[in-house]
Computed example of a mutant assay.
Amino acid sequence: MSVKLNVASDVTPLARGLAVIRAFDNFYKPLSLVEISNNISVSFANTQSICENLVELGYLSKNVSNNCYYPTSLCLKLASGFFNLSPLLQAALPELNGICDSMEGNVNLIGYDQHELTLLFCTNSYQLGEFDVPGKSQNLLYTAAGRAILSHLPAMDVMSLIFSAERIPFTTKTIIEPKTLMGEIEQAFKNGFAVVSREQNGDTVSIASGILNDRNEPIGAIELTGAWEKLRWVKKRERLGKSVQAISSSISTNLKNDSLS
């Protein structure tokens, strides 16, 4: 996923520096200057200058043996203020405390902003082949969290997002037809929760319900992710879906009450 720079000229240098840090979001290896340059659509010379500045500031490290770059632990400090002050986290964490053992999978708190999903909190009781950590990007179309959030957006916006997104058949169960995807999202709104079964991972089912702010706009979701063998039965999915919906509704209520105080 490339990083887009649609910003005013007076903030371009800052945007480019942040774009370099974001360039590593979906990679699990150090990146060369060419890879970073292609990812952020900036010239090689400018990318080299930005990377060297970030090395000097301590946000990137450079492997001198292959001239590849990777983020340092200092990048985590960029999120400290968010974790300290986020109304969503402050409202959600008390609700999530102590519920994980009864949910038969991972319970995740997903944030939503500018059509991007970000993992904010996870239990990791069920491993999906790679370790989920806060800050990881999530797929908007092929996660239950994404579809639960989309179910609260205007229909025309949802259709635009579906047609502009890359619809990849991750498995034989992946839904790629726009009309069918729209039907799944509409059903999520009727149910109060979304279910995605073996679409992104052949062994996984996810169930999610959206979190709304005081303007009834989606700002996140609670998502349960577990093994298909445990979550294959429709009645169990419905029961867990109602539980997830109850948690997300409680968080939404807390957010609305906090905005009034």
Score class of each variant (00 low, 15 high):
221 A>N: 04
203 D>M: 04
125 S>C: 13
158 V>H: 01
113 D>Q: 15
238 E>I: 00
172 T>W: 03
215 R>P: 04
155 A>K: 12
13 P>K: 03
65 S>L: 15
142 Y>L: 03
107 V>F: 02
191 N>D: 12
2 S>H: 15
131 F>L: 15
181 L>D: 04
214 D>Y: 08
173 K>S: 13
63 N>K: 03
97 N>W: 08
34 V>A: 08
107 V>P: 04
250 S>V: 12
216 N>V: 08
153 L>P: 09
202 G>F: 02
93 L>K: 10
238 E>R: 10
199 E>T: 03
190 K>E: 05
45 A>Y: 00
201 N>H: 07
3 V>S: 14
66 N>W: 13
237 R>G: 05
4 K>A: 15
13 P>F: 08
255 L>G: 04
45 A>N: 06
250 S>N: 14
59 Y>L: 09
70 Y>C: 03
131 F>G: 14
110 I>A: 05
234 V>C: 09
54 L>T: 04
24 F>M: 13
252 S>V: 02
53 N>T: 14
246 A>T: 00
75 C>R: 12
74 L>E: 07
120 L>H: 05
257 N>Y: 09
135 G>W: 07
212 L>Y: 12
69 Y>S: 04
127 Q>Y: 11
94 P>S: 07
49 S>P: 06
41 S>N: 10
22 R>V: 03
27 F>H: 13
191 N>G: 06
53 N>F: 14
186 E>V: 11
227 A>C: 11
128 L>R: 01
208 A>I: 05
219 I>L: 01
57 L>M: 08
61 S>Q: 09
90 Q>E: 03
13 P>M: 13
111 G>C: 08
87 P>S: 02
67 N>C: 01
11 V>C: 14
33 L>W: 02
69 Y>R: 04
101 D>I: 01
213 N>I: 10
158 V>G: 06
180 T>S: 11
82 F>K: 01
70 Y>N: 05
138 Q>T: 08
32 S>V: 10
51 C>N: 11
149 I>W: 03
202 G>W: 04
197 S>C: 15
71 P>H: 06
136 K>W: 06
164 S>H: 14
226 G>D: 05
243 S>G: 01
70 Y>Q: 12
164 S>W: 09
116 E>F: 02
10 D>S: 14
63 N>R: 09
261 S>R: 15
